[in-house]
Design a binder for these strands. Structure first.
Lengths: 119, 119
DNA sequence: CGGTATCCCCTATGATACTG
DNA sequence: CAGTATCATAGGGGATACCG
């Protein structure tokens, strides 16, 4: 390394990568609503759909697949008739609690800040 | 209120709103890279551009405006010739530290989780 | 240097219909 | 009930050129 300049640069990238990873997992319009809906306990596909205003079957299905792929949600098919599919948060999803809580707190703080500024 | 069902529903929405607010402020491909770049100290437009791989002038300009509007970044025009514009984080942006840190930690944790699962 | 204006494309999401 | 298939659309973001 010849100069100090590239230092910032690589530190910067190394810092941002995990942050982006995290945001990517949580992103999309419906991921958080789904996760929050499931914090009240295991639910069926139709129940989640009813809980979340405006979501379509297509999006619910897609986002659930994403969450399952990321190990945050468990999908269980009960072999009844008609079949019954339930979704629930996984133990791994608990690790998100701190993240979600800090986002929630900051969202509230920031809204208060904006209201105060616009006076 | 007649049933217990609508309870989840409204609690759910009230919980999600601030979380979405927070995510909206941080979202977009470049907001975090810009914020992180500025944690190393005040920088000029061109310096930020050089720091962040792949960003175009257009996006940098647009995202900086967003960050300024949200009170996270301060823009200062120095009346020299040619003019010199510097950007720096505001005190309010410090309140994001906990959020960013928890996202960063979770990003790392989650990546480790995924690697472990795929074995 | 520090941007803005234009044009263009692609991905995320929505609407609707259909199936086991 | 629990989805998938198909089509349509808005806006986020890239490329390029230009401006004070």
């Amino acid at each position: 390394m010849n100069e100090t300049e590239p230092l910032d640069h690589s530190v910067c990238k190394a810092t941002v990568r995990p942050i982006r990873d995290a945001l990517d997992v949580l992103n999309g319009k419906w991921k958080l609503p789904i996760i929050v809906a499931l914090t009240f306990g295991e639910k069926r596909f139709g129940e989640i759909a009813k809980e979340i205003d405006g979501i379509t079957d297509r999006m619910l299905s897609k986002e659930l697949q994403d969450l399952v792929a990321n190990g945050l949600v468990r999908r269980t098919v009960e072999d009844t008739f008609p079949i019954r599919v339930t979704y629930a948060l996984t133990p791994h999803s608990q690790s998100l609690n701190e993240v979600i809580e800090s986002l929630r707190k900051w969202g509230i703080l920031h809204r208060a800040y904006l209201v105060n500024e616009e006076k």
